[in-house]
Write a protein that binds this DNA or RNA. Sequence first.
RNA 1: CGGGGCGUAGCGCAGCCUGGUAGCGCGGCAGCUUUGGGAGCUGUAGGUCGUGAGUUCGAAUCUCACCGCCCCGACCA
Length: 617
Amino acid sequence: MIPLSRSGKEVGCRRMDEHGATVMPLGPRFKRRDRGCRGVREGDRMVRWTEQCIPTLRESPQDAEIPSHQLLLRAGMIRKLAGGLYTFLPLGLRALRNVERIVREEMDRAGALEILMPALHPREVWDRTGRYDVLRDVMFKIKDRQNRELVLGPTHEEIVTDLVAREINSYRQLPKNFYQIQTKFRDEIRPRFGLMRAKEFIMKDAYSFDVDSDAADKSYKAMFDAYVRIFARCGLRTKIVEADTGAMGGSSSHEFMVLADSGEDGLVECDACDYAANLERAESVSHAARSFDGAEGAVEEVDTPGARTIAEVAAFFKTDPARMIKTLVYLADGKPVLILVPGDRDVNEIKLARALQASELVMADDDRVKEITGAPVGFAGPVGLTGFRLVADEKLKGYRGGITGANKADKHVINVDLERDVPGLAYADIVFARGGDGCARCGGTLQEKRGIEVGHVFKLGTKYSEQLGAHYLDEGGKQHPAVMGCYGIGVTRTLQAVIEQSHDKDGIIWPPSVAPYGVEILVISAQHAESIQLGERLAAELDEAGVDVLLDDRDERPGVKFKDGDLIGLPVRVGIGEKSLARGVIEIKIRATGEMRECSPEAALETILEMIGANGP
RNA sequence: CGGGGCGUAGCGCAGCCUGGUAGCGCGGCAGCUUUGGGAGCUGUAGGUCGUGAGUUCGAAUCUCACCGCCCCGACCA
C-alpha cells in the first residue's frame, strides 16, 4: 500500500482510495481494442488529471543526464528508489504495458508460447552448465532459511532448457519456442541512464528448440522478422548489426540498435553496402598501406630515455602515434605470443582470441614481458625477436618507416619495414574497427555510430541442450540434442529508447502505439462551466469510441497545462477554452507535427478520430 | 574496482575558501487578485546542512572515516 499523508494527498495525487489506487468505476466495460492509444486494459475509461497521479517536474533532477531519463522523471513516469531501481508511476506503467503488449502480440503471431518462469533459481541449475562461475559477478546471490543457495535470474537459458529436457521427448513435439516477459536481475557494475541499464529490469526472453540447425535457422529468422515488426510498431528506427555472442556462446547473432548519441554500444555501418556490426565484432580493412619518412633507411636503434608509452615515444620523435608499431605480449593458452598493432589502435581481444584459436587469452604481466622480450614493459618490438609466435594486425601490412621497441630498456628502433625486417609475419584483423576504416565486405567506408541495444537474437546451437539433457528422439528412435536459439528484448530499455528517439525541447513525443493515452483534452479554464462540460462530454464520447483519454481538469493556469501537455507528449491534444468557444470552435493539435485544426464541438469526435487514424500506427 | 564530481527544505541551487547557530527561486498550504504558453501580492508551514567521530568556547563551513548518488573508464547476456 502506498503510504499517504492523512489527508489522502501526496505530490499531486488526489482521491486515492485506501488501497492506494485511483478509484475505479463499478463494472468494467469490455471493449475490443487493437491500438495502443486505444486501450491497454479492458475496462479503461476516461481519466481526470486531478484523479491521476502525474507529478510533473518543472526542472530536471540533477542525477539525470540524457534527455530520455530527464523526461521520464519530469513527465512523472518513473521515480528512483536507488541506483538502478525504479518505480513506475501510472503514466509510465501504461506506456510500459503498451510496449509489452506489442511484444506479446508479435511473439504470439510468430508462434511463440508464453510461459512464466521463476525469477528465483536454485544455484544447482547454474552449476550444471558451469555458468554459475561465468556469471558469478552479475548474479544476485541469496540464501533461504535452510541456507540453500539461490540466485535471482539474470537470464533463463538453464531454466527453460531444464523444462524442455523434462517435457519434450519426441521430434513430433518440435519445434517449440517459449517466451516470457519477466523481471531480470543483474548486479550491473554501473547502472546508468535511468531505465537504460538497471539492476532490475523487464525483459522479454524467448528460447527456440528445433530438430536441427536448418530448422533452428527458420526459428531464428521468424524471431528476427518479429523483432523488425516489434520495433517498427514501437515507432523506433532501428539498425540491425552483426554482434558478438559473448558469454552466451553460440554461432551467430544480431543486435537491434536504436541509434542515439547516448547509446552505450559503438557500431559501424558501411556507406556502400548493407554491412553493419557492433564494434566488438566489426571487421575492417585499412584503406591504404602506410609508408612514412625514412621508409628506405635501414633499421636504426635510437635512445629514447623514459619514453615508454606510445604517446611518449610519438612525442619524443615528434611524430604521429599511428607510425608506432605497438607490440603487446599475450599468453594464448599459456604460450607467449607477440601481437603487433598500429600505435593508434586497440587490440580487440575477442577477435584476437579467434584469430589465434585460443580459448584462454590474457596479457602477460610485467615479469613475463621482461622474461620474453628482455626489456621492461614499453620497449617490446618484433625486430630480431625469434622463437615466439608473432601476429600483426592486417592494417600493418606494407608498413614502412615504422617505429617500435628495441627490446632494450630506453631504446626504440626506427625505419622498420615489417616485410623486410620481420620475415614470415602472420597477419590478421585483430584491432577494433573504427569510422573511416574500409569495409571488409565491399571496400566502402565504415561510419561509426552509437546505439542503444534494444534486442538481441542468438543462434545457440546445442550447448545448453547437451549439458542439460534436452534431447529428443527422431523417427528412427535415435537421440539428438535440440538445437536452440535465444532472443531477448529489453522492454524497459525499449520504452526509454522510444523517448530518446522521439522528443523535442518541450517534452516527449509519443508514438500513438506506446502513448499512455491517445488524447489529452485540455480544458483551459476549469472554472468555465461550458468548457469543462464539453470536455467531459467529448472525453466520454472518445472513451466510448475506444480511445483512451486524459482530461486535464486541473484548476491551473493555462500556461502550466500547456507546458505539462507538451511534456507528457500525448499524440493528440484537444484544447477547449472560452475564447475559441466564443468563435464556435475547439482546437485539435498533433503533438508530433504541430499541426493544428479547428472544428466545431459537434464535429469534434469525428475530426479527432480521423486525425488519430491519419497519425496512427 | 580506478579516476572525477556531488550530497544544504519536495525540486533546482547559494552559503563552505576566510568557523559565530541557515538562505534564494520554484513547489506546498491559506487568502485576495488573475486566467490562452510554467501569474501577482500577502501570510504560512517545511531543514538533526548524508552519517559518525574529531578539532574548537562555537562546525553546513576545518580534519578523518564511512554511506549514498552522478559522470568517465574497466565490464556487459
